[in-house]
């Protein structure tokens, strides 16, 4: 039972990171119908920025909580800046182009960003300091869930609630929903669509960076190539829940995380990624609209 619980909570932790990244995919897809292939790379950039800031602050000798918060915040700000720039350079000029062009541009951007980090930093794995301290009151439960896992779960839940509130109740949230429904109409009623798209990219990127810093500090190492697999898996999560739907992305993340966790725990850890990809293929073939998505009829 303990093993089951451990796997389940491990799966939830994993899943919440997938969910954080998946939100970026799903929000961008909801608004401009583009699979932002470079999103995984933004997550990786966020993790790297977090590592650099954390190392700097450690040298200056700040306390652990301050380092955690500051590193996450700086990583989020930088990821948002990168997301904004990527959108402006690689996607905005292609708004009117055929569907293939932005996708290929996104693949190019992804390769560019990966190699940018590889050249500027290193191609080796870098150790990532454990930013999340061990909590004393968690001691009795340590065999089921670690402190880091608990913090990740709590932070993710908080961020999700905040995001839902922003989208539901604020002005920019309303503008985002309007743009997602009908870009032309939104423009007509005075929504600055370009600004909304930029902000969507920035929010998605910041969430991915938060996920990147949290999971990197949990796993303990990063590398310039981590974005690719994480990106594909997060995309799987987004599709699983129904792409374009925000609760769907969260649900999809949890389902994917738990599936992976149980599959590696009970079947075999060699095929961890195969399970994720297999799930993606199955979902797309049998229920392309996802768990919470609705199949849209095509207008001719």
């Amino acid at each position: 039972m303990d093993y089951f619980l451990e796997l389940f909570l491990g799966g939830l932790t994993r899943g919440s990171i997938y969910a954080l990244i998946a939100l970026g995919y799903t929000m961008v897809y909801g608004i401009i119908g583009l699979i932002n292939f470079a999103h995984g790379e933004i997550y990786m950039l966020g993790a790297f920025t977090g590592l650099i800031v954390a190392s700097l602050l450690t040298v200056f000798g700040l306390n652990q909580y301050a380092i955690l918060v500051l590193a996450s915040l700086v990583a989020m700000v930088y990821a948002a800046a990168y997301g904004y720039t990527v959108e402006k350079i690689a996607y905005r000029p292609l708004r009117q182009a055929s569907r293939l062009s932005p996708l290929i541009s996104a693949i190019g951007m992804s390769i560019f960003l990966q190699n940018y980090v590889r050249l500027a930093q290193t191609s080796d794995f870098l150790p990532f300091p454990a930013l999340i301290p061990d909590l004393a009151f968690m001691e009795p439960y340590a065999h089921i869930i670690g402190s880091a896992e608990l913090v990740i779960l709590l932070v993710t839940a908080m961020v999700m609630l905040l995001l839902t509130a922003v989208i539901r109740f604020t002005r920019i949230g309303r503008a985002m929903r309007a743009t997602a429904q009908d870009k032309g109409m939104a423009m007509l009623v005075g929504v600055d669509v370009n600004r909304v798209i930029s902000i969507t990219f920035m929010i998605g990127s910041a969430l991915a960076a938060l996920g990147g810093v949290l999971i990197a500090s949990h796993i303990g190492q990063i590398n310039f190539a981590i974005g690719f697999i994480a990106g594909i898996k997060a995309f799987t999560a987004a599709v699983l829940g129904g792409i374009g739907s925000i609760p769907g992305a969260v649900l999809g993340g949890f389902v994917l995380g738990c599936t992976e966790s149980f599959a590696t725990g009970y079947v075999s850890s060699d095929y961890e990624d195969v399970f994720a990809f297999g799930l993606l293929v199955l979902i797309l073939v049998f229920r392309p609209a996802g768990i919470l998505g609705r199949a849209a009829a095509e207008k001719v």
């Binding site: 583009l34 699979i35 095929y271 195969v274 990809f277 993606l280 797309l284 073939v285 392309p288």
Partner: peptide, 28 residues
């Protein structure tokens, strides 16, 4: 066969997944 119904982006992702599955199987 399975991807007949898919188009555009979804097709791209499934084919990507397929390619990775083949590679991972060869590796493991």
């Amino acid at each position: 066969f399975p991807v007949l119904r898919l188009r555009g982006d979804y097709l791209a992702i499934v084919t990507l997944g397929f390619g990775e599955i083949i590679r991972l199987i060869l590796e493991n």
